[in-house]
């Protein structure tokens, strides 16, 4: 299985661990990631305004490049990249005006009309590898660990476009945790915002939001939390005093598959 891989900017600097463990675990599970050449930053946020075209071109170019590789779907690990790329691709399907304007910008480059696709690494683990198979590949099961999955917003919403999982009662990360031999912790705030980019302009708000998320996880008895989003990880670690560790899901996966130290 070969897929186009879009790491995104954060995985090249602050979230190198996410990038490294994603690649290593994928390779071990027989998934080949071919990094899209000369990709640019997705912008971090999808602007829903209909007259925002130019800000989406970097995503369009990544999607266009990705369609040449594997089955044409682009794999992301970062939740934000997933959200932006997938919403961008969806716009081609529902908005002919967007398609027209984008391709005007792309003059001189190959046309693109939404024929590619976007898939999150978690979806690959669920649908291509399969959690039953993943369970068999686990060499160091996380037995006894109580792990709280933190979805945040970007993986789930808007669900009509992303169709990643049930937006109110998602299961993919909990199933993932079970496959690794640990016990998932269900808590109400797992799909509520961590404060996101507001940490830059209103840090107190980000602190309150992150604290609420972590308190909810702690109350339900979590040993640690996992996430797919570097910004969530930042807010949940730097913007709270709550000591529960937060890790990338790929790091935990690497551990369970016996990669790395310990």
């Amino acid at each position: 299985m070969k897929f186009a891989y879009y790491p995104g900017c954060t995985l090249k600097n602050r979230a190198k661990a996410l990038d490294r463990t994603a690649r290593e675990t994928a390779a071990l599970l027989g998934i080949e990631f071919e990094e899209i050449p000369e990709w640019q930053c997705c912008g971090g946020a999808y602007t829903s305004a209909k007259d925002e075209i130019a800000t989406k071109l970097a995503s369009v170019r990544a999607l266009a490049a990705g369609r040449q590789i594997g089955d044409g779907r682009v794999v992301t690990v970062c939740s934000a990249c997933y959200n932006v790329l997938k919403q961008t691709n969806h716009e081609f399907a529902v908005n002919p005006d967007f398609d027209f304007k984008v391709n005007n910008y792309l003059k001189g480059e190959p046309e693109y009309h939404g024929e590619g696709g976007v898939v999150h690494y978690l979806e690959l683990l669920r649908d291509e590898v399969g959690f039953d198979e993943l369970k068999k590949r686990v060499t160091r099961p996380l037995t006894g660990k109580k792990i709280a999955a933190y979805y945040g917003c970007l993986l789930l919403r808007p669900s009509s476009v992303l169709a990643f999982d049930d937006p109110e009662n998602p299961a993919v990360m909990e199933d993932f945790i079970r496959a690794l031999g640990a016990e998932p912790v269900l808590y109400s705030m797992r799909n509520e915002c961590c404060g996101g980019y507001l940490t830059l302009t209103d840090r107190e708000t980000a602190k309150r939001r992150s604290a609420a998320v972590k308190e909810s996880a702690r109350e339900m008895g979590a040993d640690y939390m996992i996430t797919a989003c570097p910004l969530c990880l930042y807010n949940l670690t730097k913007n709270t005093d709550e000591p529960i560790p937060v890790r990338y899901f790929t790091e935990v996966l690497a551990d369970a598959l016996g990669l790395g130290g310990e």
């Binding site: 954060t10 602050r14 912008g43 971090g44 830059l200």
Partner: peptide, 27 residues
């Protein structure tokens, strides 16, 4: 609402680039 000059004060060394580009795009 957010100017590039504001960034160094607001950002710390762990802040992911994602936060910077998102906030600038939004604000």
């Amino acid at each position: 609402h957010l100017k590039p000059d504001d960034l160094p004060a607001a950002a710390d060394e762990d802040l992911p680039g994602q936060a910077l580009v998102t906030a600038l795009r939004k604000f």
